[in-house]
């Protein structure tokens, strides 16, 4: 089972970092028997079984593939704990858009988790787009992840994070 890295602190604050986290969630395949406890399901399985699952006391997450639109979850987001966005290849950049839409347009405040081909090279982009949990695929440690996410002292455009943009720094 891959280890989970979670962000701590505010992206623009001095306490920003990342740490290993207990992953209480189990990724459940479409044909798997449903285990006890917290689960992350595919969109299809969630749409079929989600209502019943949400009514018992477990926490539920949904895994969104790049060709699926996060808008499909718009009405369920308040009940979801995790949205896992999948990177089948790390060069597939659709999940960045999905993450920004979840945060900036759909107002999702739960966990947005990167799963699949997740490398520390992407950390900066992911954090800026609103991801706050990661299942790294390259053996990255939280220390490496924090460093990679904050390699740049300045950013040039607004995104889903709270970092001050170059033109805001200049305006001070």
């Amino acid at each position: 089972m891959p280890k989970l890295i979670k962000l701590i602190g505010d992206a623009s604050g001095p306490n920003f970092g990342a740490e290993w986290a207990e992953d209480g969630f189990v990724h459940v395949g479409d044909d798997d028997a449903l285990p006890e406890g917290d689960v992350i399901l595919s969109l299809a399985r969630f749409q079929a079984e989600g209502e019943i699952l949400l009514s018992n006391s477990r926490r539920v997450g949904v895994r969104i593939e790049p060709d699926q639109e996060v808008e499909a979850l718009a009405y369920d987001l308040p009940h979801l704990s995790v949205v896992a966005l999948s990177f089948p290849k790390y060069r597939d950049g659709r999940a960045y858009t999905s993450a920004r839409l979840l945060r900036e347009r759909l107002g999702f405040t739960g966990e947005v988790r990167a799963v699949g081909d997740v490398l520390q090279e992407q950390a900066g982009f992911m954090v800026r787009c609103g991801f706050d949990a990661f299942e790294p695929n390259d053996g990255a440690t939280p220390e490496a992840w924090t460093k990679a996410a904050h390699r740049f002292r300045h950013v040039y455009q607004r995104a889903a994070d709270s970092r001050r943009v170059a033109f805001e720094e200049r305006a001070v």
Partner: peptide
């Protein structure tokens, strides 16, 4: 140029 530099959403088009 500035806006597109390391754009977090549009670097893996």
């Amino acid at each position: 140029r500035q806006w597109s530099t390391l754009h977090p959403e549009f670097s893996f088009l």
